[in-house]
């Protein structure tokens, strides 16, 4: 069945793709931290950070259209925050209007919070999109493990990653079958149907889990998956980290 592929472009070969996943994980966290810490309305710093994103996009050779499309996931939150804006009471009024008996003041402070949140969250989301599109999930997990994330947790995620496709397919087949039978026409049965679907999905998943576990046991699984390779921190990683630190810290030092 057709669904959006996980880490679709992670197989490309570019400078960013070849970096150690740990470099990318820690680098992303540092970038996001720097963006979020930037004081309100500090446009020069944010412009430099936008420049970093542009450079990363160019270096990674990822299709821009794809990246921009994926960054749209923040829209529902932006709408929510926009709804909140008229309710910031303090500050200088930019414009106001009347809705019948309801008087709304839009303040300068409210608008600047909105603008800052939109720009900052978009920069952060672009960084995450680049991270996930340039790194294979298995490598990301290996990086997490070497960054001291508990092994059980990493292994759960690696099994989850293997079966997401299978179970998502199963769920989508159920959904297609349901929709082709005029689902949603009768409100009373909506939740019951959905409950039965999810219940069936649970039982099937559970039984699948039992079979997988039995199959693994019969192949000698004893509670641990041997890790055959370790990641190596190389020269390009050190250079990348150094450059990133410079471009994150210097604008902040100069313009904060």
């Amino acid at each position: 069945m057709k669904h959006s592929f996980i880490d679709e472009y992670s197989g490309l070969n570019s400078l960013i793709h070849r970096l150690d996943p740990r470099t990318k994980l820690v680098g992303s966290l540092a970038f996001i931290l720097a963006v979020v810490l930037t004081p309100v309305n500090n446009w020069k710093v944010l412009a430099v950070y936008l420049g970093i994103v542009v450079v990363l996009v160019l270096l990674s050779r990822l299709p821009l259209r794809y990246l921009l499309k994926k960054s749209l996931v923040i829209i529902p939150f932006v709408i929510m925050i926009t709804i909140f804006v008229p309710f910031f009471k303090q500050g200088q009024v930019v414009f106001s209007y009347n809705l019948g008996f309801w008087h709304i003041d839009v303040t300068y402070e409210g608008l600047s919070i909105l603008l800052n949140v939109i720009i900052k969250s978009w920069l952060c989301i672009m960084c995450l999109v680049i991270l996930s599109s340039s790194t294979k999930f298995a490598e990301l997990l290996q990086g997490m493990y070497q960054l001291r994330v508990p092994l059980v947790f990493v292994q759960i995620m690696s099994f989850m990653y293997r079966y997401i496709f299978v179970l998502a397919d199963q769920a989508m087949r159920m959904q297609m079958a349901r929709d082709s039978r005029n689902f949603g026409n009768n409100r009373k049965i909506v939740f019951n149907t959905l409950g039965n679907m999810i219940g069936m999905l649970f039982i099937r998943s559970y039984e699948r889990g039992e079979r997988i576990y039995a199959a693994m046991l019969s192949r000698g699984y004893a509670g641990e998956i041997p890790i055959t390779r370790t990641l190596q921190y190389k020269v390009p990683d050190a250079c990348f980290t150094a450059a990133l630190v410079v471009f994150l810290v210097f604008p902040a030092v100069i313009w904060w």
Partner: peptide
């Protein structure tokens, strides 16, 4: 439950993920 049940927990995590894909009006 021991680390032996890790495969099961992974599959059930994938189940939660798949169940979240089913939406209702």
């Amino acid at each position: 439950i021991g680390e032996k049940q890790v495969p099961m927990m992974g599959v059930l995590a994938a189940f939660i993920f798949a169940a979240q894909m089913l939406n209702f009006p």
